[in-house]
Design a protein around this nucleic acid. Sequence first.
RNA 1: GGAGAGAUGGCUGAGUGGUCGAAAGCGCUCGCCUCGAAAGCGAGUGGGCGGAUUCCCGCCUCGUGAGUUCGAAUCUCACUCUCUCCGCCA
Length: 423
Amino acid sequence: MLDIKRIRNNPDEVKKAIELKKENSNIDEFLKIDEKRREILKELESLKNTRNKESENIAKLKKEGKDAEELIKEMKEISDKIKEMESEVKQYDEKLEELLWTIPNIPHESVPVGDSDADNVEIRRWGEVREFDFEVKPHWDIGVELGLLDFEAASRVTGSRFTFYKGLGCRLERALINFMMDLHTEKHGYTEVFPPFMVHRRSMFGTGQLPKFEEDAFKVAGTDYFLIPTAEVPVTNMYRETIIDGEKLPIYNCAYSACFRQEAGSAGRDTRGLIRQHQFNKVELVKITEPEKSYEELEKMVSDAEDVLKALGIPYRVVSICTGDLGFTAAKKYDLEVWMPSYGRYVEISSCSNCEDFQARRANIKYRPKDGGKAQYVHTLNGSGVAVGRTFAAILENYQQKDGSVVVPEALRTYMRCDVIRK
RNA sequence: GGAGAGAUGGCUGAGUGGUCGAAAGCGCUCGCCUCGAAAGCGAGUGGGCGGAUUCCCGCCUCGUGAGUUCGAAUCUCACUCUCUCCGCCA
């Protein structure tokens, strides 16, 4: 959510940002309604002022034992008029809110301008892409053949885009979660949080999943709860409606959670394998910072996520997401993409975003500066550290061997208690 | 699921129809005191919106929403949440 004053004072900046983001929001209509609202508000407030003053007079008159009937009659009329105007203002408020909720965040000046993911800018690469002297298999074949994954059983039990993990597959999934959580808590200074996997509507709203993207979320029937699409939602909303002591910033939290997504609009894409599931595991990093520090913290967060891939020895690249591909809440976003041999290209495994105060406004998260000044909005950041299912897939593909077995990356061996996964 | 209690500013907690946006305490900021600190003393200190933007003025805000009234933190209704006890269940 943007500051209304920012829209009012710099409408062109906002319009341009929306255009760059390939969104459409009607700023002109917003401004028109905003102006009308204020016009009425001015009149309404002066009426209320009269009522307040005269009510005081009535109290005085009554105390002195004098007759106030005349004045009371007058005020009754004013009160009726006030009610009328209040409902009018309310109508304008509702329209403004509706518009405001759907205006996206404004890209940071350092974000590359572009139309689509084709215009994203590669920042750096790490790791050697392995040369295979045999025909590489996709991870879903490797996983099924080694008895680690069972997509068929899942479709019998639930439906498409779900899977069973089995045996060492389960252990590998757990190993990845534990390895990532240990790395972030012990080496990167994050505090571990285990969140609810369901949240109410206001939390979904706070982090920007609602109202625009309701069709992407799973709603629990008969309740007002949504299954979380990412731990970003509960872990950021942990601080909703609060004022944080400035001494406590920056806050670094990390959380493992299952994530649930409808994947509306991607029917037919990535139908096989672990890449696009309705339910997947993820380790999420969330930071709450002072506004001045958030961009510095974003760079550090990206590097924290990179450390996971470096430790696992999976080749990756870092991409700066262009304006047209940015998403609704982010002011700036980096993706980490891992090399997937069967795809012959890099595939997204992490997104790290600085939302600046966009979510903080929606969720009403403020901090009290150390010098004791006025409370102001924090900046919120979130990033995958990293998507577990996709990491699972990347390991299977990058560490596969000619005989169909998969070498366990060194960093995972204490967790896996084996060097190789074979039939 | 049944019964009850409660929701007030950063925190604790008074306040049951008329200068109450709200006592008191804590915390915080500034000043005095001090070599310095603590203690002590003094002053200040919620948020949102609108208007003038050097001082400032107005409106709203006591869980949320409606209602009664000239006037609501205070009365009525609905809802949400928290706590206690009982029942049931991982």
